[in-house]
Design a protein around this nucleic acid. Structure first.
Lengths: 193, 193
DNA sequence: CCCTGTTTTGACTGTTCGTTCCAAACTCAC
DNA sequence: GTGAGTTTGGAACGAACAGTCAAAACAGGG
């Protein structure tokens, strides 16, 4: 048998994800991807198919790492109520401490591609629906633990938190100013009172 | 003196605005614009300059009509507290009644172009800042009129409403489902209690 | 009715896009 | 070593892109 792949599939996919995250789908050319992924044009097509397939794989990876794994970690380290507040705080920390003002790939994609691409829309919608479920679950559990008042409506409030979270992500890409972001997070906490 | 222009400048600009609104900047080609504006390629360049200049003019028009004029109309017809609630309701009505699921051009642009274009970012930031001011002014006036409780912090709450409003606009483009949108609007009202 | 100057028109430019392809370089089994 | 099969780099493809240009169509003033 001949040799195996010389480049790291996952590492290359992460690089592609980063490029799409920072610049968007349309604005990222295959030439950009060839350069930033560090692999050859031919290898890129042989491994990932066309540009759209590569994007979908990158989007799925983002959803897995930055939504699924991230939520699991936030839940594991916090009480229900603190998990919600920590979720907002970590988004702000990413902007303020790490200076990453690229927002959220799911949200960016929701605006750029969801309206005109059903398959991509499905991935985005599922990710956002899971975020909503996370908020709802935390509210339910927080109420069981007497951390969150009983008059808070789990469904409405979870959706409100989703809206605020998306707004925070948009603002962190276009107006990444700490006081503004802090105020938005403070209002998320206010919805739980 | 020879003749004047045969086409209607404002009408053509509105058509261009609509195309950018529905499809985004990158995804709208000059050919699309030529067809939807109903004028010739050369006339387009002679009248509006290049694509970016046309977009900026369309964005300014959007900001003027769908933000400035719209806010003024909402204020004129409502008490301060009702103005805030009406603003959210009208966004939902546009989706549910008129079926317009293109979101908000300012928000769409905030994600697509603001991070990499200073002049466009300035227009978007100003529009969003004015939205924030609208919410803050309504809260101030609502408190003077005893419509909104005194414990509501005008600055924080205005920013929270801005975040919710942006989230609502994103969701109305990617998941235009009435119950979801209604819940988000309900949480906006909850911030004023 | 022709002259003047602007607008309209559609063909045309050079560039960049996503994608394909092939020969050379290379690694492993034999 | 040698042969088999993969990766590699770069050239090349048609299509689509933003932008240009010169000639035709036109309305008014003389």
């Amino acid at each position: 048998m001949p040799w195996e792949k010389q480049f790291d599939h996952d590492a290359a996919l992460s690089k592609a994800m980063g490029a799409f995250w920072a610049q968007g789908y349309d604005a990222t050319s295959m030439q950009d991807l060839v350069e930033c992924m560090g692999i050859n044009r031919g290898s890129l097509y042989a491994t990932f198919g066309d540009k759209r397939s590569l994007f979908i794989e990158a989007l799925r990876r983002y959803d897995s790492v930055y939504r699924e794994d991230w939520i699991a970690a936030v839940i594991a380290a916090n009480s229900p109520r603190a998990a919600i507040e920590t979720a907002f705080d970590q988004v702000i920390s990413a902007v303020v401490d790490a200076g990453s003002s690229d927002g959220c790939l799911l949200v960016n994609t929701a605006l750029e591609l969801s309206p005109h691409d059903a398959e991509i829309s499905e991935i985005v919608d599922h990710g956002l629906a899971e975020m909503e479920s996370f908020f709802r679950d935390m509210i339910d559990q927080g109420q069981d633990a007497d951390e969150i008042p009983a008059h808070v409506d789990p469904v409405d409030t979870a959706r409100g938190l989703l809206g605020l979270f998306i707004g925070l992500r948009v603002l962190s890409r276009s107006r990444p100013e700490e006081p503004l972001l802090r105020s938005v997070a403070a209002q998320a906490a206010a919805l739980l009172r």
